[in-house]
Design a protein around this nucleic acid. Structure first.
Length: 830
RNA sequence: ACCGGCGUGGCGGAAUGGCAGACGCGUCAGACUCAAAAUCUGAUGAGCUUAGGCUCGUGAAGGUUCAAGUCCUUUCGCCGGUACCA
């Protein structure tokens, strides 16, 4: 009994593929249409984990399949190499983040090669090299020139003891992760990208991401999540006159409301604790309580603040506002359920028709005025809960008896006419804060000149390289400030003394356009050549985790539109189709180094080889589904591959290797020539449709398993038909288990490399069956099965079915008969 | 809390609204073997049974339909995201 010696075989083919550059992307032609398959590039954390294996195996199946379908395939890989973990490693172990990152890349590259993934390695790059990040800087400057990059003040998490900025991840329960000091919010001047300017386009262009003729499109759920994230809402701005302490005019407060129809029901106003007017409006007697409340709000997480079930809190400022439509004087409060970063940071509160406002009014004994009449319920006071539905206006002066729909528009228009507000649209999407007070990122290419202000570095002076002489202490703000030599420079405009920006860019900048760099990875004049990009982009299929649904996948769509407006790409969208792969979990949560629940793929690869590892992870669950790691089934895949191996050896010409052991005579399921012929073609068809229709890799594999089972139960093993069946098996197996498939293909006497051979063809005639099984239902319940000629017409099937039932002693007089061709007849008796 | 998703045998999972449990793991039995491993063959949701079948069964409760794992409503549990992890 021979077993499959995977080590030699896998090494042999990996070497051959690499030497012959089998997977270099060819130039697309008219007959060889492009297919760009992209997997989300890894952060080089040090080790490949099972989530990576899953991601890259899925990508490889598609690359190998479409290559054999005659497409020009671009399948690149690279490294998302800037980021926090390298800097943390530097702080903890005193090593150079660049060295740490490059060592990790080296190790992980080896692991990837070991998996036999068909990448075009010539296009590999890492984002932390100046050859890449100079183009981040180039794009940033172009955006700055167009006003798409700008500075404004924004809070950061600040640990007073470490005197450093903390990432959200480094804040645990409001405290610094290292020294446990209470974290405070500190305002810093920071750089933003004006993504909000693209909110409408980002929403509108979802239409390009629907399934279509040449694209599977994006999952509906991702589009919905993005839509909610962008959060468009129609409503009105309303300007309220503020009276400090109830009498002294203090300017206007603009609120945003989606319900201008309820304006007459506003009985108080709430400002976000961070609202700039709070200080001015706080009367001396309230100063202390307001200050305490603002302090508390600073420490409360956004998730808590927006929690509807949480008991409402707030403080009265001592000041009042005038409702512009009826002149009512209403108190101005502050409360943490109003967020500064949405709308205007201030709301008019209508307790009768908003449940949050209602809860607040109940707690603080603020009057409730009903202004919308619920058509399904008679007027009954006092209200027990807010009514948020539509209806007819009451208590609303000239607008009484109007419907909510009519009045929304009318009230907003009237406000505009009087200069007291206007109809408007707002978005939840906030501008992208890209400044990071860290070392291991792309330096923001700006110079501050006392005379000229913020001036971009000249394009020809790029890249602004990261300085080497920086110590990593975890203390102090931006580490680049230490490098005084580096900071000191001259103004690109006036040549006077100036200093560099010391913040670096968010790593999401790197990953927002890397897909385009792959099309022209060595370009030294531009981020990439438009001609190259337009050949391949939009990416035909993007594969990655669902956790990126809102951030990375919105940022890169935004960047693509910016690049389009610069003339670098033609398309509106970067990714035509998206496959969101499920997480690989252990103990219910995603595998991650920080949780320590990581399984090294090496354990499987060392024992069974990468073909088994690849097939196993695909077979365990459909790709979009979460996969709880368990290696229970690995042995099953290993056994299956060995079953195939032994079949292949039957036809290898090596007499000693013919070792298929069977006991056909004991089987009650022997397979005929006709059945095996049909199965060969049914399997070819099924594997193709499973891959193309819905990434059904697990069912494709089980179809191949069924074919192999059938071959084992075919009596004349060794004849031409069985050879054809084994050959088909090997060909269909290649995307999944490429090393073994190549080896068997060669052993069976083929000269071409299997991965370079056309995908097998289905002979539709061979799929036809003489008889098919029809199920008989009575009143929708399964009662019997019969075989009928596959050509049989409806009437014939019905009478055959009635006859079969009568033979079983059940005479049926149906009132109605449901007939589903090739499936069933259902006799309905009542 | 909000937005999105997922709940099917002992386990991973399969199933255009049309035979629930394909395929695999595990288990049991048989063959081969001095024996074991490996391999090959068969059986395997639960309950009942006069052995032909019958009843129940897809997190829970309702509903639509000739027919519901699949569609609708409510509900419970778990997972992802919530803007400085990537």
């Amino acid at each position: 009994m021979t077993t499959y010696h995977f080590k030699e075989i896998e090494q042999k083919w990996q070497k051959l593929w690499e030497e012959k550059k089998c997977f270099s992307a060819p130039n697309p032609t008219i007959d060889k249409r492009p297919y760009y398959i992209l997997v989300m590039f890894p952060y080089p954390s040090g080790h490949l984990h099972m989530g990576h294996v899953r991601n890259y195996t899925i990508g490889d199946i598609l690359a190998r399949y479409y290559r054999r379908r005659g497409r020009a395939v671009l399948h690149p890989i690279g490294w998302d190499a800037f980021g926090l973990p390298a800097e943390n490693a530097a702080i903890e172990r005193g090593i150079d983040p660049g060295q740490w990152t490059m060592d990790n890349i080296k190790h992980m590259r080896g692991q990837l090669k070991m998996l036999g993934i068909s990448y075009d390695w010539d296009r590999e790059f890492a984002t932390c090299t100046p050859e890449y990040y100079r183009w981040n800087q180039w794009i940033f400057i172009k955006m700055f020139e167009k006003g798409l990059a700008f500075r404004k003040k924004s809070p950061v998490n600040w640990c007073p003891k470490c005197a450093t900025v903390l990432a959200n991840e480094q804040v645990h329960n409001g405290r610094c992760w290292r020294c446990h000091t209470d974290v405070i919010q500190k305002e810093l001047e920071q750089w933003f990208f004006k993504i909000s300017e693209f909110a409408e386009q980002l929403l509108e262009d979802h239409k390009h991401l629907a399934p279509g003729k040449d694209q599977k499109g994006w999952p509906e759920e991702v589009l919905i999540m993005q839509k909610n994230w962008i959060g468009k809402s129609w409503g009105a701005f309303v300007d309220f006159e503020a009276l400090e302490g109830g009498s002294k005019r203090a300017g206007t407060i603009r609120v945003f409301t989606t319900r201008p129809d309820t304006l007459f029901g506003a009985t108080f106003m709430v400002l976000s604790p961070e609202h700039p007017m709070v200080e001015k409006l706080t009367t001396p007697d309230k100063k202390k309580s307001i200050e305490t409340y603002r302090e508390k709000a600073r420490k409360t997480s956004k998730i808590d603040r927006t929690n509807i079930d949480r008991e409402k809190t707030g403080e009265f400022t001592g000041s009042f506002a005038i409702n512009p439509v009826n002149g009512n004087r209403i108190p101005i409060w502050i409360a943490d359920y109003v967020m500064m970063d949405y709308g205007t940071g201030a709301i008019m509160a209508v307790p009768a028709h908003d449940s949050r406002d209602f809860a607040f009014a109940q707690k603080f004994k603020i009057p409730v005025i009903q202004v919308i009449q619920n058509p399904d319920q008679p007027l009954s006071l006092p209200l027990k809960e807010a009514y948020e539905g539509d209806g007819v206006l009451i208590n609303s002066g000239p607008y009484d008896h109007l419907s909510t729909d009519e009045s929304k528009k009318k009230i907003a228009d009237d406000l505009k006419a009087k200069g007291l507000g206007e109809p408007t649209v707002t978005y939840k999407l906030r501008d992208w804060l890209l400044s990071r007070q860290r070392y291991w990122g792309t330096p923001i290419p700006i110079v501050y000149c006392p005379k000229c202000g913020a001036v971009p570095v000249k394009l020809e002076d790029l890249p602004v390289k990261l300085p080497a002489n920086v110590k990593f202490t975890g203390q102090g703000d931006s580490p680049l400030k230490q490098s005084t030599e580096w900071v000191k420079t001259t103004c690109p405009k006036c040549s006077g003394p100036a200093s560099r920006e010391t913040d670096t860019m968010d790593t999401f900048v790197d990953s927002s356009w890397y897909y385009a760099r792959y099309t022209d990875p060595k370009n030294e004049k531009l981020p990439f050549e438009a001609a190259q990009a337009n050949t391949w982009i939009p990416v035909h299929q993007y594969v990655g985790g669902i956790e990126h649904a809102c951030m990375h996948l919105i940022y890169s769509r935004f960047f693509h539109k910016v690049l389009r407006d610069m003339g670098l790409v033609k398309s509106d969208e970067p990714f035509a189709s998206l496959l969101t792969q499920g997480m690989v979990t252990l103990g219910g949560s995603a595998m991650s180094k920080s949780k320590g629940n990581v399984v090294d793929p090496k354990t499987v690869v060392d024992k069974y080889g990468s073909d088994t590892a690849r097939m196993f992870i695909l077979f365990a669950a459909p790709p979009t589904q979460q996969l709880e790691w368990s290696d229970q089934q690995v042995g099953g895949i290993w056994r299956f591959l060995n079953r195939v191996w032994r079949l292949g050896q039957m036809f290898s010409g090596d007499e000693d290797a013919k070792s298929v052991k069977r006991s056909i005579e004991e089987s009650s399921n022997v397979v005929s020539k006709e059945e095996l012929t049909r199965m060969i073609h049914a399997t070819i068809e099924r594997v193709g449709t499973d891959i193309e229709r819905d990434f059904g890799f697990n069912t494709a594999i089980s179809a191949i398993m069924e074919l192999v089972n059938a071959i084992y139960l075919y009596p004349d093993l060794g004849d031409d038909l069985s050879k054809e069946a084994v050959s088909a098996t090997v060909q269909l197996l290649e995307p999944f288990a490429p090393h073994m498939a190549e080896e068997l293909w060669e052993m069976m006497g083929n000269k071409s490399m299997l991965s370079q051979t056309k995908w097998p063809q289905v002979d539709k005639d061979k799929l036809l069956q003489k008889e098919i099984q029809i199920i008989i239902q009575v009143n929708g319940k399964l009662r019997h099965r019969i075989n009928v000629p596959s050509q049989a017409k409806e009437e014939e099937v019905k009478s055959l079915a009635l006859a079969a039932m009568e033979k079983r002693g059940q005479k049926i007089v149906p009132k109605r008969v449901i007939f589903v061709p090739h499936k069933l007849v259902n006799f309905v008796e009542n």
